[in-house]
Amino acid sequence: MQREDIKEIIFKSIREETEFGGDINESMSANDIEGWDSLAHVRIIFRIDHYLNTQIDLNSTYATETIIDLIELFIEEIK
């Protein structure tokens, strides 16, 4: 799977969970997206895992600051 595909899945998961209607870009963080609270974070990760067929360690996702970091984390997970 290409980086762009993973990015789109992550964007899609964020939109589905938060119902955020604005533009999302890679440099954004959870604070920039309304509705992305601690429970939504877990549910976003569940969704990404579901689409990518992964089971990422949730703790590692808390260390991410921006969506770029999250994309890189899932790229590593898939490798």
Binding site: T18, E19, A30, N31, D32, E34, G35, W36, D37, S38
Partner: peptide, 16 residues
């Protein structure tokens, strides 16, 4: 707003 509410009450709005 999100940063302040997250750090004080640990709940952020679903929508602003």
């Amino acid at each position: 707003i999100n940063k302040l509410l997250q750090s004080t009450i640990e709940v952020i709005p679903r929508k602003i």
